[in-house]
Amino acid sequence: MTGGHYIFWFVFVLMVIGLYAVISHGNLVKKLIGLNLFQIGVFMFYIALGKVEDGRAPIVEEGVEVYSHPLPHVLILTAIVVGVATTSLGLALAIRIYEAYGTIEEDEVIERDKAAEQDGTAELNGTAERDGVRGGEAGP
């Protein structure tokens, strides 16, 4: 094999696709999906570092000598559950943003903020709230 790095190249391509989705897409939910893809790339990277050729899962048995390394498994195991917890937090924030602005597109949120700034800060709260109600009707 060419240096045996092929699996890292796959992992890097996955990370690149994930990062591309996070940066270039304006939709907040799509960004979170991209973040999930990036996360999977990072998980794969760690697990691949622990793998040994002809190794077994790190559960000690008689007659088995070669095991893959358990430490990356521990780190990633917890990271996956932490990952879903943080994703849910991100989704909750996206829902609140939708209710306040009537959109989850980043650009439209910024536009609304700018418009509200021009109207003056006193009215800001009022508009945001009314927009939220209207957005809720028009949304799904």
């Binding site: 794969m44 697990i47 622990g50």
Partner: peptide, 23 residues
């Protein structure tokens, strides 16, 4: 395939189950 059975159980339940439902 990479010998991480514990991780696979977690990812199967989280990645295909719970995070999909939350999304």
């Amino acid at each position: 395939v990479l010998d991480a059975l514990d991780v696979a159980i977690t990812e199967a339940a989280v990645g295909t189950g719970i995070s999909t439902v939350l999304f």
